[in-house]
């Protein structure tokens, strides 16, 4: 169940706890699980897309300039992108506060 639907009472919860709106996982903010976030160094980036391929949450999108950018609404901060980047262009930075 998407977190955006989560604040419901027992009288208003969907019948059988079904998800009646297909694809609503897109509105599930998983970004707030994150303790560190990826920061890209565009000087080093060769736009190879390895981060995009390996991201287990499909949080990466390509920008018009061809760089891959992490969507922090979904990014859980696992660090796989930084680990896989062949140019060490991605650094994991602790989230503060």
């Amino acid at each position: 169940m998407a977190k955006s639907d989560a604040i419901v009472g027992w009288k208003t919860i969907t019948f059988g706890c079904h998800v009646l709106e297909p694809g609503n996982t897109a509105s599930f903010r998983t970004g707030d699980w994150r303790s560190q976030r990826p920061v890209l160094d565009k000087e080093k980036c060769i736009k190879c897309g390895m981060c995009y391929i390996f991201c287990p949450d499909m949080a990466y999108d390509q920008t018009e300039e061809g760089y891959y950018e992490c969507n922090l609404f979904y990014c859980k901060g696992c660090g796989i992108c930084a680990h896989e980047c062949p140019k060490n262009a991605i650094t994991m930075v602790p989230e503060e506060g």
Binding site: M1, D5, A6, I7, V8, G16, C17, H18, V19, P22
Partner: peptide, 12 residues
Amino acid sequence: PISMGPVGVPEV
């Protein structure tokens, strides 16, 4: 299409 049997997070 609907989904049956999803995860129930602590909030639900």
